[in-house]
Amino acid sequence: MADASQNSPSGGRRDQQDSLRPVTIKQILDAQPDGDEFRIDNSKISQLTFIGQIRNIASQALNITYKLDDGTGSIEVKQWNDMDATEANPLRARLVEGAYCRAWGKLKSFNDRKHVNVQIIRPIDDNNEVSYHMLEATAVHLYHTRGPIGANTGASQGAVNNAGHQQTSGAAYGTQKLAGYTPMAQRVYQYLSNEPQSNEGLHQQDIAAKLGIDVADVAAAGDNLLEGGLIYTTVDDQTWAILEAD
């Protein structure tokens, strides 16, 4: 995939295909064609969700076409009739001209004219959803163009070491919770809290070596902490990581 920079390496194509992205109608109109698909902010899009006021309704034999306007542009959305439906969609009566609604669907292009095939279109009950959607679309746009929140603000130590942030909070949490544990268990816990490590945690051999104590003592301390639910075993019974309580 050419757009690997937007995703974790393990994310891959499936995540892209299954994504649901909140967008403004201007973003839909600006979407760049890429084969059969489209890109927004250089990320492939799949399902979209957006809001708009209904400007026009055209009922046809096989579908209903609504024209939605959210102030940033307008686009036609088509809802294909469900031939198996036994009764009419009760929401449809409330989808009238001027009403705000939310739609979910996929962008299509026909003769260079874009429209969205929607699975669901429903009226908006709480009008704050309009504000919410605009802010969410902005947040997701910024995520795609500038990266995750906190990655470059310095507000989170996570930027340097992914586990670092969690460990700090774990240590603070530990000071209150460690009262009932053996001194050795407290030492091991503090060490696990402060030592840089991967998601797999640390092996008891390494802990023993670093702290200069006997492996058997570390094992006993580990059992103590495991029983209390403060740590958990990861790749094997001798490798432990701090159990985050949040």
Binding site: T24, K26, G71, T72, V130, S131, M134, A137, T138, H141
Partner: peptide, 14 residues
């Protein structure tokens, strides 16, 4: 806040 966001991040709105 939406008004503010739409002007600050105009590229996706107008």
């Amino acid at each position: 806040a939406v008004v503010e966001a739409t002007h600050r991040h105009k590229e996706i709105f107008y």
